[in-house]
Amino acid sequence: MTVTSLVELSGAGYAYEDGPDVLSGVDFGIPEGRSLALLGRNGSGKTTLMRLLSGGLRPAAGRLLLDGEPVSHDRAGLTRLRSSVQLVVQDPDDQLFAASVEQDVSFGPLNLGLPDAEVRARVDAALAALDITALRDRPTHLLSYGQRKRAAIAGAVAMRPRVLILDEPTAGLDPDGQERLLDVLAGLSGTTVVMATHDVDLAVRWADDAAVLIPGGIRTGPAGELLADPELLAAAGLRQAWSPAVTVFLRAHGLLPHGSSGPRTPEELSALA
């Protein structure tokens, strides 16, 4: 069965001024309804790839497609794209700018020209989804780091995108904050989430699919399979995840039932004991 991508790059390339190609000949798409982890070493092109997909950069070669149709990088084309694809950058202070949480979250819907009642409904829903309704009147500069992360994501969620791209959303959060954020992402209905991360264990546990940037290209596939390839991870400058390694050990010693997937969390491993 052919999987249709919501947004995709076809033969895309990009180079910054006076620099070498960061990406070249990239064919990469985001299918609907599957969580995707994007991994690669620093300088591999992850941020460039995310900005190309969200319209922040224009491909120097190739095309950006939305629903199979080329995206024009004029005002109308980018408005169409950003109604469907939203990018949340790693540092929330690069994204938050309004005086209060409510004002910041409402900025995007207001710029779509939506009626006031629709804007209020979207803001209310986004604040509730990120569990920050109580912070709606709080000045953004008085938020904790984790709260600022949630507020930045809420601003993107209020746009009701079909694709939400998050750059290292768990970076800087303590373990409890990471788990709470993952619970929030799991509850976003109707939105396909893409997460850039260096945490291979997190990617194996959270994502359906993975995309790994390596010199000369990008490899994609089911997260549990792709991220169990030690040669691929070495090429990408990533350490091996414990989950695939444990799964190989359990299967080699007949401790994992035939056809069963391996444990993805310590709790699942304990349940096998």
Rank of each mutant, 00 (worst) to 15 (best):
T191P: 09
T191M: 15
T191V: 15
T191G: 12
T191Q: 13
T192F: 10
T192E: 09
T192A: 10
T192Y: 06
T192K: 03
T192I: 04
T192L: 09
V193C: 06
V193S: 08
V193H: 06
V194S: 08
M195I: 15
M195T: 11
A196M: 07
A196C: 08
T197C: 01
T197P: 00
H198N: 09
D199C: 08
D199T: 02
D199E: 07
V200H: 00
V200T: 09
V200D: 00
D201G: 12
D201W: 13
L202K: 01
L202M: 15
A203P: 00
A203I: 00
A203F: 09
V204P: 03
V204A: 08
V204S: 10
V204Q: 05
R205C: 14
W206N: 03
W206R: 02
A207W: 04
A207S: 11
A207L: 08
D208M: 05
D208K: 10
D208A: 11
D208E: 13
D208V: 07
D209Y: 13
D209W: 15
A210D: 01
A210L: 02
A210C: 02
A210P: 02
A210V: 01
A211D: 04
A211G: 08
A211W: 07
A211Y: 13
V212W: 03
V212P: 06
L213C: 08
L213V: 00
L213H: 10
L213D: 01
I214A: 14
I214L: 15
I214Q: 10
I214W: 07
P215M: 10
G216S: 11
G216P: 03
G216H: 07
G217P: 03
G217L: 01
G217N: 09
G217C: 01
G217D: 02
I218Q: 04
I218F: 03
R219H: 14
R219K: 15
R219Y: 14
R219I: 04
T220E: 07
G221K: 00
G221H: 06
G221C: 02
G221R: 04
P222G: 14
P222M: 13
P222Q: 14
P222R: 13
P222Y: 13
A223K: 03
A223N: 00
A223L: 07
G224Y: 05
G224Q: 07
G224K: 04
E225W: 12
E225N: 10
L226K: 04
L226Y: 12
L227Q: 06
L227C: 06
L227M: 09
L227G: 06
A228V: 03
A228C: 12
A228E: 05
A228S: 14
D229M: 03
D229S: 14
D229G: 13
P230R: 04
P230A: 14
P230Y: 12
P230S: 05
E231S: 15
E231Y: 05
E231M: 13
